[in-house]
């Protein structure tokens, strides 16, 4: 198997890289859609970890867990897009730094 020749550390590095990309996106972008994508990246970084460890230990638990995470991500996207639509309708824009009126 090709996969078995790849050590677990590589997967972890990949996962960390994807996670940091997502985090970077959240910290620097102002567009709500980019936010959503960044969050997806972070979630999937966690998924990579789960699958990698699952594979490493030879059990299926991590992979099954990943399926759940994906379902959760889908639900989160649905809500996220809903929020973005409302945001656009109210502010004619999807810039997340603009609407700050909920603070107090």
């Amino acid at each position: 198997m090709v996969l078995s020749s790849v050590p677990a550390e590589y997967y972890l590095l990949l996962s960390a890289a994807v996670f940091c990309t997502g985090l970077f996106g959240i910290l620097t972008r102002e567009n709500a859609l980019m936010f959503l994508m960044s969050v997806e990246l972070m979630l999937n970084a966690a998924n990579i970890n789960l699958v990698a460890f699952s594979f490493y230990w030879g059990t299926l638990t991590g992979q099954v867990f990943t399926l759940f995470t994906m379902a959760l991500a889908a639900a989160e996207v649905a809500i996220g897009i809903g929020i973005i639509l409302v945001l656009y309708r109210n502010f004619d824009d999807v810039d997340v730094t603009g609407p700050t009126t909920l603070r107090w």
């Binding site: 959240i26 910290l27 620097t28 102002e30 936010f35 997340v96 730094t97 609407p99 700050t100 009126t101 909920l102 603070r103 107090w104």
Partner: peptide, 13 residues
């Protein structure tokens, strides 16, 4: 509550 900025990015940071 004056501490709050309301900017999502700040909270994420």
């Amino acid at each position: 509550r004056r501490l709050q900025t309301g900017v999502v990015t700040n909270y994420a940071a």
